[in-house]
Simulated scan of single mutants.
Amino acid sequence: MAQHLDTHKGLHSEHGAVRGEHPGRSTNPVIKVRDLAWLEFEKPDLERAERFARAFGFTTVLRTEHELALRGTDAGSACVIIRRGPRSRFVGPAFAADDAADVKRLAAATGRPTSSLPEAIGGLVVELADPGGMPVRVVAGTRDLAELPAQQPHRFNFGRELVRINNTQRPPREPARIQRLGHVVLQRTRYRRSLDWYLDHLGLIVSDFLYYPGQRERGPTMSFIRGDRGATPTDHHTLALVLGPSDRYVHSAYQVCDLDAVAAGGEYLRENGFQRSWGIGRHIQGSQIFDYWRDPDGFLVEHFSDGDMFDNTLEPGWAPMTASGLAQWGPPVTKDFLGITPTKESLREMRSMMTAIRDDNEFDLTRLRGLLKVTRS
């Protein structure tokens, strides 16, 4: 058995766990998924969705009257599927299992049937529902799309290490080319129950826990969760869960090749009239260089590059959740990113706060005070 490392000082978080805290992994998960496969959305205007998607850096795989499939340059499946619907909403994620046997094992353990995916996608699927009622698909045997020509990272002269001579740097202002889907962040009113569900059923493991300042004894309120692929490094987080007053999508993130792709791609988006939410900066948990944008329907999406990659030996880190602690460098976190700019969505979230503290869930009055403290920190 691999030795688990607790190397948080100076690495990726402030502290490790103290005795009795959540271990960040299940002792006997049903299966261990390999990665996120794709995310599914519904939107009433597919034409508008595709215009933004192309400016953001996706390539269209499929376009019909009722469905839009978007991919990155890496080999694999489409990473976003958008179907026409009466309103804009996030439907749910699909996770990739290693093989059909894992899908069948998960189906048997949960009493759910398996079915074949459409011919264009191929493979087997079992559809579950997480504790928030959101559909969660687990798939295997899907058809891989061939790799596309990728945007190449730049070469840099650092100090006296010269690798670029008689050659200029002129990154064009054009869409960053999405390489792949990185992660999705979800808010849950029953955060702890949801966390344990994903660890127990899908074999995911926690990279970092965050807790409200002064409330560590009540347990974490956010977790950054990665796949367990043994000695093979994987993204710092494939899924992140955060406690909040409603069950909702927060954002999804897509990898691009380097900082120039993030920055020049952002300039292209800005010049074409799209709304930056927050960026450019570098996160603490995960270390990604980030840039957040709003699509025309208000959904938050992220370009990122240079994220942390962990194998399964690293133990979870623990740190207080603060607004100022979201980045190592970059502009101050915006009200838009925090969801406190007056919009229809933020007003809906405020109403949810009043409802949630009266309901039977984890978001009580003490947690509400903790969240408000975070937004002011």
Rank of each mutant, 00 (worst) to 15 (best):
D45W: 03
V126F: 04
Y198F: 15
G57S: 04
E271Q: 15
R84A: 13
V374P: 01
G132P: 05
N272D: 07
A96I: 11
P172T: 00
L259S: 05
Y249P: 05
I340Y: 10
D228S: 07
E349P: 00
S277M: 11
T366S: 12
P233A: 08
R192I: 09
S77I: 07
Y212A: 07
G76V: 02
E42F: 04
L338I: 04
T189W: 00
P153N: 03
T221W: 02
L124Q: 01
K32T: 08
T234G: 15
R112A: 13
I31G: 00
C257A: 04
N157M: 12
R89D: 07
A327R: 11
D208V: 15
G132D: 12
G132N: 11
A96M: 14
Q215D: 14
G133C: 06
A2G: 12
V91P: 00
M1Y: 06
H236G: 01
F41C: 04
F290I: 13
D260W: 03
R71Y: 03
R89C: 14
S305M: 00
S13L: 02
A261Y: 00
G182E: 10
L5Y: 03
D144K: 13
T64Y: 00
P23D: 07
T334G: 03
F156V: 11
A140E: 01
R137W: 10
R218G: 06
Q288N: 12
T238W: 12
Q215T: 05
S277C: 15
L239P: 00
T60K: 06
V103Q: 00
S194F: 06
R160K: 15
A140R: 01
D364Y: 09
A17F: 03
E267S: 13
T313L: 07
Q169D: 11
D228H: 13
L241R: 12
Q3C: 09
T60F: 04
A97G: 06
